[in-house]
């Protein structure tokens, strides 16, 4: 039986950490939001390009922090690629923890849910009305 630790850093999670999905800057972003976890300084920024129908044309993330915070952001963006704003809205915190996989203690859940919080904020943050960058 694998130990908790082995479950926490499963191979596919480390793959996302080292080879993330869409890490970087999105030139045509229509929406963007950033937040951090004050406990540990994890930072995630997500940029979205939405069309008029609410479809996600493209999305990118950037950030710094622990494996869980960064790998989960990569996994979330991969999951949402090609989907809609409504899909983001319907994607719950519980869904996010399930997507990540290994069971997390409350403090590590905060790391995993950072990107989820940021993407929920991003859909309400058009880029012309925010100056976070």
């Amino acid at each position: 039986m694998p130990s908790d630790e082995e479950e926490l850093y499963q191979e596919h999670i480390l793959d996302h950490y080292e080879d993330p999905f869409h890490r970087g800057h999105l030139a045509g972003a229509t929406h963007a939001h950033a937040d951090k976890n004050p406990l540990c300084g994890d930072v995630v920024r997500i940029e979205l390009q939405l069309d008029d129908a609410g479809k996600i044309v493209d999305l990118y993330f950037d950030g710094q922090g622990c494996v869980i915070s960064q790998a989960s952001a990569s996994m979330l963006l991969e999951e949402m690629y090609g989907k809609t704003v409504d899909d983001i809205k319907q994607f719950s915190a519980e869904d996010m923890l399930k997507l990540y996989g290994p069971r997390l203690t409350p403090n590590r859940q905060k790391c995993c849910l950072l990107s989820w919080k940021v993407i929920q904020g991003a859909i309400h943050s058009p880029v012309d009305s925010n100056d976070e960058r």
């Binding site: 850093y9 994890d42 622990c66």
Partner: peptide, 22 residues
Amino acid sequence: IHSHEFAQVLNDQFGVAVRAGH
């Protein structure tokens, strides 16, 4: 490598309690 990884693995694999963060 973020301090969280050190604290987590030190605890889970070595039984060592350290502080991670600011």
